[in-house]
């Protein structure tokens, strides 16, 4: 290709670009109403499409994220603590159970402890291990007949009533029943002020739960 040829081509190519450049100018100068409105309309359509798809996607995403947010009652289940007669009268014993909601990768975390106090035949109190203040594990001291918390000094009497320290209330209790000789408790979730505080306690018959069976 000679230099002359190249020179002769260049002006043409520039000319061929010109209409496009004019159109671009028209966009910024808003001379051509048709071009402008169509481009902006398509941009808005693109935004609307993405917004719509985003909304459609957001629903299942939020449903997935909120999956653990369930009613307290959906976690309630009766868990056996073993033979009721295994708990001596007039004593408070530590008992263990496996949390009913568990996965194979939970490791040791689904071992849950609780305190069983047997006042007499068919007379139980089952306390959560968690302090009503901030959930630390309280310990039972039979010598002083007190539950004490190692974290912030919460103290409870043998019947679970608050004795001193920061807790606002007594120990959390589980509903219980005796079925075919076994002591069963209504457990399934970590007791906190927002769930256990609402539990009703009905002290009648064999068990303290409205639907004892």
């Amino acid at each position: 290709m000679s230099s002359d040829e190249r020179n002769s081509i260049e002006p043409q190519s520039v000319k061929s670009i010109d209409p496009g450049a004019a159109a671009a100018e028209a966009v910024t100068g808003r001379d051509d109403k048709h071009v402008v409105s169509r481009r902006w309309m398509l941009l808005k359509a693109g935004i609307a499409l993405n917004g719509l798809v985003g909304l459609v996607l957001a629903v299942p995403i939020f449903r997935y994220l909120l999956a653990p947010w369930r009613k307290d009652s959906s976690f309630d289940s009766w868990v056996s603590l073993g033979q009721a007669d295994a708990f001596p009268e007039g004593e408070t014993r530590l008992a263990f159970y496996k949390n009913p909601f568990r996965q194979s990768w939970d490791g040791e975390t689904d071992n849950v402890a609780c305190y069983v106090r047997r006042q007499g035949p068919g007379q139980f109190q089952v306390f959560a291990i968690n302090c009503a203040h901030l959930g630390c594990p309280v310990r039972w001291f039979p010598q002083s007949q007190l539950f004490m918390c190692p974290c912030h000094g919460g103290v409870y009497y043998a019947d679970g009533e608050r004795a001193s320290g920061p807790p606002e209330r007594g120990l959390f209790t589980y509903g219980w029943k005796v079925a075919s000789g076994e002591l069963q408790i209504d457990a399934g979730q970590m007791p906190t002020l927002s769930n256990t505080a609402r539990l009703v306690n009905i002290q009648v018959g064999e068990g303290n739960y409205p639907c004892r069976g």
């Binding site: 653990p68 369930r70 909601f101 568990r102 490791g107 970590m190």
Partner: peptide, 14 residues
């Protein structure tokens, strides 16, 4: 609490 722990207790999901 359920959202924080990913379930009813402190466990694998947490």
């Amino acid at each position: 609490v359920h959202l924080l722990l990913g379930g009813p207790i402190i466990a694998g999901a947490t």
